[in-house]
């Protein structure tokens, strides 16, 4: 029986609201153990009602240049990942059953090992007397070891290695969503394969490209372990500065201010990428 005055739409809405309860345990956990501490940290940056810490972060050339350096690293990692990932994703989207299984296995294998272990592995591989340099010298290709470690090269190699799957997967997913009749139609209408790709397939995969780029850029910006271990102090990322402020100087309020700057920069870039690619997304969905 309907109780009087109880609107049918209200009943309908109540049914939908019940589903929200399913998310409550996870939200509770994140809220108490993550969101609340983060908010506390952010609040620390303006403790005592002063913007002093932000002024220091903005005016001291060191901090600004580190932020710019972080963005440069993130940009380079994103670009390298894109160039390496697109062909892989394209191949996977066209591969047969065996190729797909092997490709996916190789792609997801690194996720079974921690980033820390993988980064240490790079130390072994890239060092002056590492596997790579020794092999190249033994074969007589080089005489002086290549500077692969404790510099930008090492950081880029390590970060690209860790982040590459995050670029491949969204591009692969967006390529799969493209109706295979579309490139076929393009070829039937007179397009050579490469023109069909440039005019049809690539533009339609842009949602995946932009998702991958946003993901990698944002993850890179906050990267810590890999640049810390492979950069040898020559590549400083914002996250390393924050860690230094907390661990060495116990300057929590300033670390909080830097964290806030990083968070805001990350969100801004995320929004920017989203806006830049909204056009292509609208066209494809």
């Amino acid at each position: 029986m309907l109780s009087p005055g109880l609107n049918r739409r209200v009943i309908a809405r109540r049914r939908e609201r019940g589903l929200f309860l399913l998310a409550v345990p996870a939200l509770l956990l994140l809220g108490v153990l993550f969101a609340w501490p983060v908010l506390r940290l952010l609040a620390m940056s303006v403790e005592g009602g002063t913007l002093e810490h932000f002024r220091k972060a903005a005016l001291d050339g060191l901090y600004v240049s580190v932020l710019l350096e972080s963005m440069k690293v993130a940009g380079m990692v994103t670009a390298i990942c894109l160039v390496l990932a697109y062909p892989v994703a394209f191949w996977l989207s066209r591969a047969g059953r065996l190729g797909l299984a092997l490709g996916m296995f190789a792609l997801l294998l690194p996720f079974w090992t921690s980033v820390l272990v993988r980064t240490y592995a790079w130390l072994v591989l890239l060092g002056r007397n590492g596997v790579i340099n020794r092999a190249l010298r033994d074969w007589g290709w080089i005489e002086v070891p290549l500077p692969l470690l404790h510099n930008m090269t090492g950081v880029l190699i390590g970060m690209v290695h860790v982040l590459l799957p995050y670029m491949v997967l969204p591009i692969y997913a967006s390529l799969l969503r493209i109706d295979p009749d579309l490139p076929r139609a393009a070829e039937g209408l007179g397009a050579p394969a490469w023109r069909a790709f440039l005019r049809v397939t690539f533009p339609l995969s842009l949602p995946g490209v932009s998702a991958g780029c946003a993901l990698i850029f944002v993850l890179s910006l906050g990267f810590f372990i890999t640049p810390a271990l492979l950069g040898g102090g020559r590549v400083i990322m914002v996250s390393m500065l924050i860690e230094q402020q907390v661990r060495e100087f116990l300057n929590w309020p300033f670390a909080a201010a830097l964290s806030t700057v990083l968070l805001v920069a990350t969100l801004a870039i995320y929004a920017l990428i989203g806006r830049l690619t909204r056009g292509s997304r609208l066209a494809t969905h």
Binding site: D181, L182, R199, V200, S280
Partner: peptide, 8 residues
């Protein structure tokens, strides 16, 4: 069959 018009 599904026209295969280029959506973009």
């Amino acid at each position: 069959q599904n026209y295969a018009l280029f959506p973009h």
